[in-house]
Nucleic acid binder design. Structure first.
Lengths: 204, 204
DNA sequence: ACTATACGAGACACCGTGTCTCGTAAAGAT
DNA sequence: ATCTTTACGAGACACGGTGTCTCGTATAGT
């Protein structure tokens, strides 16, 4: 687990920390404030200075925890989306529908507001880009990769498969529509994408 | 054709304009400067103030032409990419390969640098979003839509087809990879995407 | 006590934004 | 030739965010 924060997590301190302990309340209220501003006024309205004002804390306390706004936002998103369930429904169609359903629901939340701005920041900061890929993309991709593996073992999917490409075919339309706004990201999309991709994946 | 500029184009003035004419040279040098900065230092380094400095013009002359940086950049991109050829190669595979090839080549140019930032700006400015969709996305989509129509008439593609979804399946992986950087955008991707999508589109 | 860290307050320099005013230049209209 | 209209360059302006720093104070372990 890569850290997005400035200091290593204290989740399991090898030795009790030295000085005055962090006020965990600040973390919580800041994250909540960010998610609210994200939802109500968009990515651009999220500001290190503005959030500090909103929660009535010193800006220094923000920079003590996060190196900058993009890291803060990424951290909030990871927090908000929680761990990814990798359901094993028994059928490939079921697994894909479940996986793709989480996309579609995620895009109904703060992710939709944050993603465009975050993508822009990723383009200037390789470290941020890697962190976002690792913490947000990778778990979902792995979940689908596992589902494809199970399907192959069951003989439901062809043995030779460009798995990475299949992942991009599944997710691409969601991100594409979410970022450009030329089409809806709704349950209908989930349905269609899965149906169509199954034609590719199905053996013969 | 929606205008990205502040004033209506003078391409075909109904009546000769009134006052001192615009210096078209400024437009040209600004566009060139933007494309260069885009290429060498990325979207963030493109700045109304900075470009004005670079080309030694007044900032007011910039704002006279474009309402702001995102419109300027979008204008430059449209300029740089030029009109889209919609080749009719005779086969669906050929048409798709041609169309998708232009994606891949576009992402090797300034588009790659500009897109993430532009997407972020689109998220706060519906007018910009619409202009970008109309001028950059729509022509390419139409070109592919036409190819699919031809294929259907030739019996090469199934008659009932969710065309919009097919377009997103074709383009999604390119934008997805370009924006998140988790995979290459190269000729191999073009090949694979077309091959896989043909399995969806092909009649039965 | 001593040390280490956190917190709040405030200051700092920096840069980009978008608007405005001024004096001057270049075109058509009368 | 003058008038009107628009463009241009220069410069100023207020605004807001960034990231860093210093200070005095608070709270923990040693």
């Amino acid at each position: 687990m890569k850290r997005l924060k400035s200091r290593p997590s204290r989740a399991r301190p090898s030795r009790p920390p030295r000085g005055r302990p962090r006020n965990e309340n600040i973390d919580r209220t800041v994250v909540a404030a960010v998610l609210e501003v994200l939802r109500t006024r968009g990515y651009r309205a999220v500001t290190m200075a503005g959030i500090a004002r909103k929660v009535k804390r010193a800006r220094a306390s923000m920079y003590r925890r996060w190196p900058g706004k993009p890291y803060l936002v990424a951290d909030c998103l990871v927090n908000a989306m929680g761990p990814r369930p990798a359901p094993d429904t028994g059928s490939l169609r079921g697994d894909l529908r479940a996986a793709v359903g989480t996309f579609q629901r995620a895009f109904a939340g703060p992710l939709k507001e944050a993603l465009p701005g975050l993508v822009a920041d990723m383009a200037h900061d390789p470290r941020l880009a890697q962190a976002v890929r690792r913490q947000m993309l990778a778990p979902r991709r792995k979940s689908i990769r596992d589902a494809l593996d199970r399907a192959r073992r069951r003989g439901e999917a062809r043995r030779t498969l460009d798995v990475e490409l299949v992942l991009d075919l599944l997710a691409g339309p969601f991100y594409f529509r979410a970022l450009f706004g030329h089409g809806p990201v709704d349950p209908r999309l989930s349905r269609s994408v899965v149906d169509h991709v199954l034609k590719i994946v199905g053996r013969k």
